[in-house]
Design a protein around this nucleic acid. Structure first.
Lengths: 244, 244
DNA sequence: CGGTGGTTTGAACAACATCAAGGTTAGTGG
DNA sequence: CCACTAACCTTGATGTTGTTCAAACCACCG
């Protein structure tokens, strides 16, 4: 593990060398602070608009003309936001702060120089992007094929696994700034039905859910409901380019 | 546009130079043929297992213990499959041939050499991965927040846009080897309800759908139903590394 | 003490799943 | 050309899951 918490995602597959870290430093710009509820960018803003989250939580959302909103992902410190907009003319999603947030903008030309300076870090960025893809695939699967309690279980497990990787020792407790309204937007259901599904999870003794503190009482039971296997990352990526 | 059809995805953002093409050639192995219904790989197979689709259509699916199945994406020639499994120990999804198929395996070590040999092509690969992400985000949004006819509309529009990019001149006709059962698996609904939703699209004069030939009669109407904007890729990616 | 944001409940209604059957089409072998 | 099969499409009936709207409840905060 590197000593820089914001780079946790990069050393999931290989220990970052001092050279790797030196190559990553120019990527991130001046830290910026925003308050809960403010946006890093809105859907429709000119692309690219990328950032590295340093502190706090954000959420990526897409809004619909009928007032509906799909929450695609919540981001933790160390996550990068705005990357899916890189190929496009305008950003496809909005990123809103769920807490007070500190982030660093990422400039596209700095990204270009990173690819040139370090094939190895570029390959790590490739792996991180593929991670985002399978996590989206898992969420599409539960939202498409599983009933609401299972969708909630699936999201909770995915979030818990991510929090564990970045902060081992949280145990089975998920502390997060998400309201039941937010959970409904995450799993694609109404606030009312989300509330009743949470009560069902409580009644099955799978979770102890009070306000914004969720204790996972029966991880295997939650996994059965979500109907998805646990994903395990493979740390030996022997194909990765070596440091020059 | 390069003259090699299987590399269409790569020159969406910048014209591939002869050097770029030369760097991509070693990536792909011996072409392999399989028949409709056969798999390139199964979920649970050891990772990585990557390939470049040369001819025919495939689909990526995740199966659930209850017998359900979510279809995540259909792949066209030029698409790469198996990339989301790269960070993992086992493949998260299966890729099955929807037609007779020709593909080339992609070896991980060849991928590593590509990152070293060409920062520019590596950056193109980064952009392609982000494209896959926003397409998944759009699908998660329609499946989560839109009713079945709109989900079908959204998938059709996305597929049509992809087919147009790789083969301009198909007009408004989508010829594809997908049954209504497959469409149900794609949009997360039952075969019965999918059939009734297709009839609704027909009745609204949005599509002319017969067997495996679908004519999009009213693209704007379909877009209204799907409630998603058209995504436009930005070809001027001035941050891309230049050829050495 | 009156907001405000969040959670919980009820009741009526719409969307969707499930099961079962019938119909249609394309393909195959005689 | 016809009989037969398999895959696919279509329809009906019934029950469940989820939505919508409205209101009550609760904790926290200025």
């Amino acid at each position: 593990m590197t000593s820089i918490p914001a780079l946790v995602r990069f050393d999931a597959y290989a220990t970052l060398t001092p050279e790797d870290v030196a190559n990553l430093i120019p990527l991130v710009g001046q830290p910026t602070k925003i308050s809960r509820g403010e946006h890093i960018f809105h859907e429709g803003d000119p692309a690219p608009n990328m950032a590295l989250l340093l502190d706090g939580w954000t959420a990526s959302t897409i809004s619909l003309p009928d007032g509906g909103r799909q929450m695609l992902k919540v981001h933790l410190p160390g996550d990068m936001v705005g990357l899916p907009g890189a190929p496009l003319d305008v950003m496809p999603d909005s990123v809103v702060a769920l807490t007070d947030v500190t982030y660093s903008p990422i400039r596209a030309d700095a990204l270009g120089r990173l690819f040139e300076a370090s094939p190895r870090v570029a390959a790590l960025l490739f792996l991180i992007s593929q991670e985002e893809r399978y996590m989206l695939m898992d969420r599409l699967t539960t939202v498409g094929r599983v009933e609401t309690p299972g969708r909630i279980a699936g999201f909770l497990l995915q979030l818990h696994a991510r929090m564990l990787r970045q902060n081992p020792g949280i145990g089975q407790i998920v502390r997060c700034p998400l309201s039941q309204r937010d959970f409904a937007d995450l799993v694609g259901t109404s606030e009312t039905h989300c509330n009743r599904s949470i009560q069902e999870l409580r009644h099955l003794r799978l979770v102890d859910w009070k306000m914004r503190q969720i204790m996972l009482l029966d991880i295997d039971g939650l996994r059965d409901l979500a109907m998805l296997p646990q994903r395990r990352v493979r740390r030996d990526q022997s194909w990765l380019p070596l440091v020059h």
